[in-house]
Every structure is written in structure tokens, then in C-alpha cells.
Design a protein around this nucleic acid. Structure first.
Lengths: 254, 254
DNA sequence: TTTTGGTCTTGATTTGCGTCAATGCTTGAG
DNA sequence: CTCAAGCATTGACGCAAATCAAGACCAAAA
């Protein structure tokens, strides 16, 4: 459910909000905060009921079909996003087309906070996804008068930074097999933390996405997964994998 | 001057502050904020003269000899640091000894903000260095009552995050030659921003440090620098390099 | 002065992963 | 049902960077 929310097979043109966002406004009157499942895990958890009422009116809940864009590198950073459903890939492109995925965003993750006036990376939906979208100006003004939210955002940024540094170690110093192991375990851990417990790890992204995240090629990803499956460390199932020897994987990823 | 502050050849035991910090307290009465050259470029620039007076009493200015440690991975994160002079390498170690340098800190950079109760990486001085050292508890309490400082710290963390993502692209998708080019240009740009303009780029870190930052081996770093020198793109000088064909380097780093 | 230890460079060789290429599998259109 | 279009897997081969090895350079110690 978390990773595969309902499909938006026939995207309607947004009737409200920014027509360029590529998504479809689900709740023009604001985020559906009351029934929001990831709210306790997201930055908005520091706002009380009174504050939420103001906050939710700053933005809208927007749905995105798989493979559609939330925002793109170098385009004006005029909105921030709080992902509530689905998975989003964040990536940077080199001029010659090489791509590096810098992260997969999960429900509860906050996206688009830019230091510069433009986005420094692109974001598009891996699965269909839903996000609360806030105009940047309004959001920043609200943050400026709500130190508790600022503090929470800073914590989130600090956490992101530790993840980014982990990824640097992976990209700079780990073998293909270690990268795959660390990726599988890391994703499982992040999903676990947001309440998605399962013996099977769903991998909604393509092999190419995994390759571009791990600094490998699609062939190496495929071969390495096959090798781990041959060694009975994992089992490859449709749309994902199952863990067979967690210990072995954890040794590789250590 | 910035990169090679006066040496602390004969480190005295600190008479004040934490005796385990490995450094030498230069100003027991607080940071030497009045004459601080990098203050306008650091996070403390948001504090007015009145606020600085409170703030400076929270910590001490501490000197570190080259190669001594400011803090280490997994040790209790009981202090934060604002680097004022010298260069510090930040790195993570894998259990088998492989090392990934996740950044080189320059004057004005803020270090040690941890999400967890322990540091997630190690930091030691490349050159001799000076930092304002604040007990974490005191610092956090002050930040909590000073939203402007919190905002500035959040900006700094966001900036760090964009640098970290750039580094992911470098580690995941660039060739050895491109990595070296991007490293040289990136370091020059950062030094330029803090007022260190020079046609010569000083490289106080070892080849091994550069290798561990770029995800290469020391031999590849050496060979690649030699190749760039043979191609007359750079000139290798004692302790650094000089730029000859900036344009060519920028193309490689693009 | 020579020696020692550290860092850097250079050359020879190996190798892990990339590249190229073919084939298989799945899904949806017709 | 067949067919086409993507994606994934597998194999053969190539190459950029790692590894192994030797020597150069430099500074400090003896």
C-alpha cells in the first residue's frame, strides 16, 4: 500500500494550483492532514492541531503518475514537497547524459529545500505518488515564524547528510556486491522505520535506477543479484526480493 | 596564512576545557571573536555584538597540531566545532580499514553537528588548525533560544547537502581525470569564497587523502596529476599546483 | 656525512566492472 | 491468439583503474 498507492491512470488537468507541476490536485482545500498516515513520522509532527490548521492551507495534496516529474534540476525552485505516498527518485544529470541517483524518497521525506534559487537535482515518481506541495515563499514565511518546525527541518537535513555520507563511502570504497547488500538492507531499514514491515522487499524501481544509485551498470546489478540468489542469500521474486541469509548480507554491508 | 597558521610544535596540556580533546586551549576566556577573520563568513555572522558576548562564553578557541584528532567516529558527540584556521579532514572508516574522506573542512565551516549521540565520522587536522569548541549541550541550548542562528545552521547544512550530492555524482559517475579536475576546481572555488585568492592552489593534504576523497588509489591520483601536467593543464609545484588551462579543467569537471 | 622513514612517482601486470551483443521474459495492443 | 516494446538476464570481450613492485625524492635523525 505504501509503495503502490492507487494509480492515477487518467490524470486530470489540475483544476487548482500550479498547472506546470505535472500532477493532479487531490485536495484543493489543503493537505488531508487529519487522515494522514505518515504525519507522525514527518516534519509536520511538531505542529499542534491549531498550527496544522494554518499550515495545511499553505499547500495542496497532489498526485503524480509513475514516471512523471515533481521538479527538475536548474528550474526555479518555487515549491517544496512533503511526500505522503509512493516512491520518488532524486537525481542529477551530467551534460553527457550520465545520471547519478542521489536518493530514493519515501513517505514522510521532505523534498525540494534548495539553497539556491533553482533546484540542484530532479525528482520524479518511481511509483505513482502523493505529496503535499507548498509554494516556497509561503512555506519559508511560515517556517520563519515557527522555530519548532525549523528545528525539525534542520534535524531532517542533518539526517539526510549522514545518509549522504554513508552513500559516499559506498560509492567510493565498496565493491559491487557490497553496494547491492548495503542498498537492500538500507532500503529495508528505511521502510521498516515508516511502518512497512515485510519479509519481502519490494523494489519498485528499475534495475537501471538501482545501477544509477549505486554507481554501477544495469548488467552488474543484474549479475550481482543473480549471484546473491545463487548463493541463497536472497530470493528474487517478481517486483522485489526476499531475504534468506540476513546475516551474510549484513556482513557484506557492514 | 589561512591554510598554514602558526605551528603548535610543543603542544601544552590544556589548562582549561576537556583534556581529552587532544588540542591546546588558546583562549580560555572564550573565542577571540573580536579579531576573528572568518566571522563574517561563518554561522556566527547572524549574531549581533550583544549576542556574541553571550555566545563566545559558551566555548573556547582550541589549537590542534597537524594530524591530531578533533573527534572520532562512534565516540560520544559532546562538542561542536567552528573551524577558524587550517584544514580538517572528515572521514569514515570501514571495519577492514578502507577509508572514505567525506569532506575537507575549511575556515568558517561548522563541524560535529550530529543527529545521533555519537559522531558519525572522524575529524583530524590536515594542517595545524584552530577551532572554537563548544560543549554540545550548551550550544544546543543557545541555538534553541536563537532562531536566527538555527536558521543559519540550517542553511549551512543544506549547503553541505548539495556538496555531498555533487560528491556522489563524482564518486558514482566520473572518471579519474574528471574527479581530479573537479576536486582541484572545487577546492579553489571554496578557498576563493573565503577570501583566499591565488593563482597557485596549495594542497596541504597528502596524495593518500586526495585518493580517499575521490574514491581512487594513490597511484591513480599521482598518474592523473602527472598526465594533466604533461598536457600542460596544470603545473605541479611543491605543496600544490598552478592552473595553466582553466578552461580545459572546467570542461573535465563540468 | 650517511641512514632512516615517509611520501610520491613510475612501470608491469591483473582484475572487477563496463561495454557490446544476443536472447529471454513480461505486458499490453491489436 | 500474435506481435511489439520494454526491461532483465546472460555471455564474450575490453579497458580503466587497482594491485604489485621498484625506485626517487626529501627531511630529519644519527
Amino acid at each position: 500500500m505504501l509503495l503502490q498507492p492507487k494509480k492515477f491512470k487518467d490524470p486530470v488537468e489540475p483544476a487548482f494550483g500550479d498547472p506546470n507541476c505535472g500532477g493532479c490536485v487531490l485536495d484543493p482545500s489543503g493537505c488531508l492532514c487529519d487522515g494522514c498516515k505518515i504525519r507522525p513520522l514527518s516534519v509536520c509532527n511538531v505542529l499542534n492541531e491549531q498550527e496544522i490548521k494554518t499550515f495545511r492551507n499553505l499547500g495542496h495534496s497532489v498526485g503524480y503518475n509513475a514516471k512523471t516529474s515533481l521538479f527538475s534540476q536548474d528550474e526555479e525552485a518555487d515549491a517544496v514537497f512533503n511526500l505522503t505516498e509512493g516512491m520518488v527518485r532524486l537525481y542529477k544529470l551530467l551534460p553527457d547524459g550520465r545520471r547519478q541517483i542521489v536518493g530514493f524518497a519515501l513517505p514522510g521525506d521532505f523534498l525540494g529545500l534548495a539553497f539556491e534559487p533553482t533546484y540542484s537535482f530532479s525528482a520524479d515518481a518511481v511509483t505513482s505518488a502523493v505529496a503535499c506541495r507548498f509554494p516556497r515563499k509561503l512555506f519559508e514565511a511560515y517556517v520563519d515564524q515557527t522555530p519548532a518546525l525549523l528545528k525539525r527541518l534542520h534535524e531532517a537535513a542533518t539526517y539526510e547528510l549522514t545518509l549522504a555520507r554513508e552513500q559516499m563511502v559506498l560509492l567510493g570504497r565498496r565493491s559491487a556486491e557490497e553496494r547491492i547488500a548495503a542498498f537492500l538492507i538500507g532500503l529495508r531499514d528505511r521502510l521498516y522505520r515508516i511502518g512497512y514491515h515485510s519479509p519481502t522487499l519490494r523494489l519498485p524501481m528499475s534495475r537501471q535506477d538501482i545501477a544509477d544509485f549505486l554507481g554501477l551498470t544495469i548488467e552488474t546489478v543484474s549479475r550481482t543479484l543473480t549471484k546473491l540468489a545463487k548463493d541463497k542469500v536472497i530470493l528474487i521474486v517478481p517486483d522485489g526480493i526476499r531475504f534468506l541469509k540476513m546475516e551474510k548480507l549484513e556482513t557484506l554491508a557492514a
